[in-house]
Design a protein around this nucleic acid. Structure first.
Lengths: 146, 146
DNA sequence: ATTCTTGCAAACGGTTTGCACATAC
DNA sequence: GTATGTGCAAACCGTTTGCAAGAAT
């Protein structure tokens, strides 16, 4: 389930021009191993379980640095609070309107190239984000309406 | 540029099960006539220019009621603060990463039906939102990078 | 008369900021 | 040794909430 050792994570940080600290390693690893698109708060708690506690302010600053450096994506704000994603492969998201969970949508076609759009040549399109909203399987089964 | 009188707006509110007050009329008209996807704050200022000032709290409560009633859309939060839209026709948005302006994308195909998706039959999809991010024409010309 | 809405002000919560200290390079 | 990152706490700001007064039905 792991697939990378500390040395690997250190290289990744360096490759993105980021100075290496144990806090950054911990934060990036937590995000890297999570599929939950966690918030800063959640990352903070998760990191605190394995290492001595890191301040929440540092988590915010670090995630912002990571995001600037292109190491992670800030899915911000699809839900009420900012959520982060270490998976940089282009993919879409499903957001549950009830429990706020975010699911990756794998293998959903993204035919339209994000870079051009008829009638909008004057816009410089950097990225395309598709968000589906509705009930996730868990919340759907709890609803009366099938 | 107008196209609807007060009586028309009153009917629309009633049709959505909303009690009619002059504050609600003012707020809905302001949003209806705007193409800027204004924030609550902006609506508040705009309304204050034409009527006696309405409290900001009321603007927030009212927009929330409108949104529940299906009278408007809460594009929330595509940018840093919630932005609202009275145009209920399905359409996509372009958000400028620099000036935060939101543009409607008219006539952009939305082939995939929002209701079904191969491999995600357990999800109840209510709506699909496509957001393109990049530089709008104005900000693009101010950038060095063409 | 009853129910819903408004205004006001205080509270809330996620995020940002300033600064002194510590660490990476 | 210098630049950069961290911790802490206070500030910020969009938004929500509680409640008494007011308006709609």
């Amino acid at each position: 389930m792991n697939g990378m050792d500390d040395t690997g994570f250190i290289s990744i940080l360096r490759e993105h021009g980021l100075q290496v600290t144990y806090q950054r390693l911990a934060i990036y690893q937590a995000l890297y191993h999570s599929k939950e698109h966690p918030s800063a708060e959640e990352i903070h708690q998760q990191v605190g379980r394995r290492f001595s506690m890191i301040s929440l302010g540092t988590v915010y600053k670090t995630l912002e640095r990571f995001s600037e450096a292109g190491l992670i994506d800030k899915i911000n704000p699809v839900a009420e609070v900012a959520r982060y994603d270490a998976n940089l492969m282009p993919h879409h998201h499903f957001v549950c309107v009830k429990c706020q969970a975010i699911y990756d949508l794998e293998g959903v076609s993204d035919d339209e190239s994000p870079m051009r759009l008829d009638g909008y040549e004057d816009f410089k399109i950097l990225k395309r984000q598709v968000i589906l909203r509705g009930y996730c399987p868990k919340c759907r089964s709890r609803e009366t309406e099938s």
